[in-house]
């Protein structure tokens, strides 16, 4: 019988042969991207590959993930829904607003969302929060993984519009999409500075770590509004 350890609300470590990150499958019997399903005492766990998911990598890098069963999440850069599916598992009684700009990825995301009631797909540009402000409620967490050169600015614009005063921002910064030539360390420093200072009231950085060995040239950032 595999052993299950709870890491935080909705996030588990299942030990079967080896330690594996997992969430409880909200859509039993179905896999999303070829991950393994492990039933333990009548509950089905879905393994979560940190090499394919920046949020998964952040959890293994000991980031505090401020998510509860009923959390509301704005997910920017949902892509095909690999990570989104796990967030949907975690906030089983909450809501995920999944914003994605590419129609090709949206095709897969729609397939996923039609099987998960707490997932609301939005095809829009995350840099233009006005275009979906009529849909989204104030959220507890904004997770952003957009690979755009103005990532910090996008995060700020969305946070001002949708993030609750005590809500959190989780950000994955990809150095290569800001400047392919510069040193990633310098870019990370600059992006963190932007988050802290570029707008009112600015973010307080709670944690910032690279995601090695799971992701190359990525920085994970956890932040909230300055008091």
């Amino acid at each position: 019988m595999p052993e299950v350890k709870k890491l935080s609300d909705g996030v588990f470590e299942v030990i079967k042969d080896k330690k594996q990150l997992a969430t409880r499958n909200l859509d039993p019997g179905e896999t999303v991207y070829g991950e393994k399903l492990i039933p333990v005492e009548g509950i089905e766990y879905r393994t979560w590959d940190p090499r394919r998911s920046k949020l998964g990598a952040m959890i293994l890098k000991k980031f505090h993930i401020p998510l509860k069963e009923n959390s509301k999440v704005l997910y920017l850069g949902a892509a095909s829904g690999t990570t989104v599916s796990h967030v949907s598992d975690i906030v089983s009684e909450g809501a995920v607003y999944a914003v994605e700009f590419a129609p090709r990825s949206m095709r897969d995301l729609i397939g996923l969302a039609s099987r998960r009631k707490n997932l609301h797909p939005i095809l829009a540009d995350a840099g233009k929060p006005d275009s979906y402000s009529h849909l989204v409620e104030p959220v507890d967490l904004i997770f952003q993984d957009v690979a755009q050169p103005n990532q910090a600015e996008i995060a700020a614009r969305n946070a001002i519009r949708f993030l609750k005063k005590d809500g959190h921002l989780l950000l994955s910064i990809k150095a290569r999409s800001i400047d392919t030539a510069a040193n990633p360390r310098e870019i990370f420093k600059e992006e963190v500075r932007k988050l802290e200072q570029a707008f009112e009231p600015g973010f307080e950085i709670l944690n910032a770590k690279d995601l090695v060995p799971y992701q190359e040239d990525h920085l994970g950032v956890l932040a909230k509004f300055k008091k």
């Binding site: 129609p103 949206m106 729609i110 039609s114 609301h120 095809l123 849909l135």
Partner: peptide, 10 residues
């Protein structure tokens, strides 16, 4: 509604 709108856009 979000599903229907996204399908329409796709």
């Amino acid at each position: 509604v979000t599903l229907e709108a996204a399908k329409h856009q796709v």
